[in-house]
Deep mutational scan, measured.
Amino acid sequence: DRHTIHIGDITIHLEGFSEEELKLAEELIKRGIHLEEVKRILEELYR
């Protein structure tokens, strides 16, 4: 499954994450956390 996060003019595609995980990812990215770090956090929390 493919999910999309929109932040301003930026569109990020993250596959294989639930709606809850994507909301967390979006919040972290909006707070300035680097995408690679966001992915690592999600994997630690949900895998």
Results as ranks from 00 to 15, higher is better:
Gly8Pro: 04
Glu27Leu: 15
His34Ile: 05
Glu27Asn: 10
Asp1Phe: 01
Leu45Val: 05
Glu26Pro: 01
Thr11Asn: 01
Glu21Asn: 06
Asp1Arg: 05
Glu20Gly: 07
His34Ser: 14
Gly16Trp: 12
Glu37Leu: 14
Leu22His: 08
Lys23Asn: 05
His34Asn: 11
Ala25Ser: 02
Lys39Pro: 01
Gly32Thr: 04
Leu45Ala: 05
Ile7Glu: 06
His6Ser: 08
Leu45Lys: 01
Glu27His: 11
His13Ala: 08
Ile29Thr: 04
Val38Leu: 11
Tyr46Gln: 11
Val38Cys: 01
Glu37Asp: 11
Ile12Pro: 02
Glu44Ala: 11
His3Lys: 03
Tyr46Asp: 03
Leu28Phe: 12
Leu42Thr: 00
Glu26Trp: 15
Asp9Ser: 12
Lys30Phe: 15
Ser18Met: 06
His13Gly: 05
Ser18Thr: 13
Asp9Phe: 11
Ile5Gln: 03
Leu28Asp: 00
Arg47Pro: 14
Gly32Met: 12
Ile29Arg: 02
Gly16Ile: 13
Glu15Leu: 14
Phe17Tyr: 13
Gly8Asn: 09
Leu22Val: 10
Ile33Gln: 02
Thr11Lys: 07
Ile12Ala: 06
Leu28Ala: 01
Asp1Ile: 10
Arg31Met: 08
Ile29Phe: 15
Leu14Phe: 12
Glu27Lys: 11
Ile10Gly: 06
Gly32Val: 07
Ser18Ile: 05
Gly32Asp: 02
Phe17Pro: 02
Ser18Gln: 07
Ile29Glu: 00
Ile33Trp: 15
Glu43Phe: 15
His6Ala: 12
Ile5Asn: 03
Glu19Ile: 14
His13Cys: 05
Ser18Gly: 11
Arg2Leu: 11
Glu19Val: 13
Gly16Leu: 10
Thr11Met: 09
Lys39Gly: 02
Lys23Gly: 05
Asp9Lys: 03
Leu24Ser: 03
Glu21Thr: 12
Lys39Ile: 14
Glu37Met: 13
Arg47Trp: 07
Thr4Lys: 03
Arg2Phe: 13
Glu19Met: 15
Ile5Trp: 00
Glu27Tyr: 15
Ala25Ile: 13
Leu24Gly: 01
Lys23Val: 08
Gly8Tyr: 08
Thr11Val: 07
Ile41Arg: 02
Glu20Thr: 12
Lys23Glu: 06
Leu14Gly: 03
Glu20Trp: 14
Ile41Met: 11
Arg31Trp: 15
Leu28Glu: 00
Val38Ser: 00
Glu26Cys: 13
Leu45Cys: 04
Lys23Arg: 13
Ser18Lys: 08
Lys39Tyr: 15
Ile33Asn: 02
Glu27Trp: 15
Ile5Thr: 05
Gly16Val: 11
Asp1Cys: 11
Glu21Arg: 06
Ile12Thr: 04
Leu24Glu: 02
Gly8Ser: 07
Gly8Arg: 02
Thr4Val: 10
Ile7Val: 10
Lys23Phe: 08
Ile5Ala: 02
Ile10Val: 13
Phe17Asp: 03
Ile33Gly: 01
Ile10Ala: 03
Glu20Leu: 10
Gly32Pro: 02
Leu24His: 12
Glu21Lys: 03
Glu44Ser: 03
Thr4Asp: 08
Glu19Ala: 13
Arg40Asn: 02
Tyr46Ile: 14
His6Ile: 11
Arg31Tyr: 15
Ile41Gln: 03
Leu22Gln: 07
His13Trp: 11
Leu22Asn: 05
Ile5Ser: 05
Leu24Phe: 11
Phe17Thr: 04
Ile33Glu: 03
Arg2Tyr: 13
Glu15Phe: 15
Thr11Asp: 07
Ile10Trp: 13
Leu35Ser: 03
Ile29Met: 07
His13Gln: 11
Glu20Gln: 12
Ile7Arg: 04
Phe17Glu: 02
Ile29Cys: 04
Val38Arg: 00
Val38Trp: 13
Lys39Cys: 10
His34Val: 11
Lys23Ser: 07
Glu43Lys: 04
Ile7Thr: 06
Gly16Asn: 08
His6Tyr: 05
Glu44Phe: 15
Leu24Val: 14
Leu35Phe: 11
Leu35Met: 10
Glu37Val: 13
Glu20Asn: 07
Glu43Arg: 06
Ile41Asp: 00
Gly32His: 04
Gly8Val: 07
Ile10Ser: 07
Leu24Cys: 04
Glu26Asn: 09
Leu14Tyr: 04
Ile41Val: 05
Leu42Gly: 00
Leu35Gln: 03
Arg47Leu: 14
Arg31Glu: 03
Ala25Met: 09
Leu28Gly: 00
Asp9Leu: 12
His3Asn: 10
Arg31Leu: 12
Glu15Met: 14
Glu43Trp: 15
Glu15Lys: 13
Leu42Lys: 00
His3Ile: 12
Thr4Gln: 12
Leu42Asn: 00
Arg47Tyr: 02
Glu27Gly: 07
Lys30Ser: 09
Glu26Arg: 15
Ala25Thr: 03
Ile7Ser: 08
His13Glu: 08
His34Arg: 10
Leu35Tyr: 08
Ile10Tyr: 11
Ile5Gly: 05
Ile29Lys: 01
Glu26Tyr: 15
Glu21Tyr: 15
Arg47His: 14
Gly8Leu: 08
Glu15Tyr: 15
Glu27Ile: 14
Lys39Gln: 09
Phe17Ser: 03
Ile5Met: 04
Val38Asn: 00
